[in-house]
């Protein structure tokens, strides 16, 4: 069953076309890894999917519901309230964590529940503790981000996204800012979420992880889907020259 359907998505910053017509259908429970060179538009694509960036053209449908309204000049217009609903249903985890430094770990996880959902404090706190326990940080609840390691910060950020009960999760290079020895703990959490059958899209340079966890691989080049297919198809037997060149440049790639 399709949860997300993207049709002809475009986005430009100033005069550069960053996305040039993306068509994409995501089924429930699918795990899509997005690969591509730096600047190919991976982050922009993810950010458009939860409307952190307004799409330039094309449509995005969530659960069969096309978002926004056709404006007079043909451009789609979006109401802020609608987008806020979408962002709660599509969670996002960032490369730089973006934790709120003035709140404890549990404060970070509770923030969306309290402020956005208006959930009473005891309930939000119980829920937040559950999410922190899920990422293995129950005992760090009262710690401020400044006193957490990079890996712990990213796990708190994942808990913060999970607390909103998203139907889908977007990860933008969740381990790229981490020291190598801390990458494993974050990948383990993501793997556990995968095993729960969650729908997710993941931008990553960890090709081995993508191979094991993803159900589909998308290779993005110049703002368009250059090649896609199962991990075996794309990573082991790439059909296109650019995909091959990209994979060759990732030496650490081993299955």
């Amino acid at each position: 069953m399709t949860i997300l359907k993207v049709t002809g998505l475009t986005k430009r910053f100033g005069t550069t076309d960053v996305l040039r017509g993306i068509d994409l259908e995501v089924a429930r429970g699918e795990r899509i890894a997005i690969l591509g060179a730096s600047g190919s538009g991976k982050s922009t694509l993810l950010r458009c999917l939860n409307f952190m960036e307004r799409p330039g053209g094309g449509t995005i449908a969530l659960d069969g519901q096309v978002l926004g309204r056709e404006g007079k000049s043909g451009e789609r217009t979006y109401r802020e309230n609608e987008l806020i609903q979408v962002r709660q249903r599509v969670g996002m985890v960032f490369q730089q964590f973006n934790l709120f430094p003035h709140m404890t770990a549990i404060g970070n996880v509770m923030e969306g529940l309290r402020t956005v959902r208006g959930m009473p404090k005891p309930e939000a706190e119980a829920r937040a503790r559950k999410e922190l326990a899920r990422v293995g940080l129950a005992e760090k609840a009262e710690t401020y981000p400044a006193h957490l390691s990079g890996g712990q910060k990213q796990r708190v950020a994942i808990a913060r996204a999970l607390a909103m009960d998203p139907e889908m999760l977007l990860f933008d290079e969740p381990t790229s800012a981490l020291d190598p020895e801390l990458v494993g703990e974050v990948l383990a959490v993501i793997l556990a979420l995968a095993e729960e059958g969650r729908t997710m899209m993941l931008v990553t340079h960890e090709l081995g992880f993508a191979y094991h966890v993803a159900t589909r691989i998308i290779f993005l080049a110049d703002g368009a889907i250059h090649e896609q297919g199962s991990p075996d198809e794309v990573l082991k037997n790439p059909k296109k020259e650019r995909t091959r060149a990209f994979l060759a440049s990732h030496k650490q790639f081993s299955f």
Binding site: N50, I84, G91, M92, N98, L99, V116
Partner: peptide, 15 residues
């Protein structure tokens, strides 16, 4: 990134 983090959990601008 702080704005991003806040918006990603569904906050309005004023929140």
């Amino acid at each position: 990134g702080q704005w991003d983090g806040a918006r990603a959990i569904g906050m309005r601008h004023d929140q």
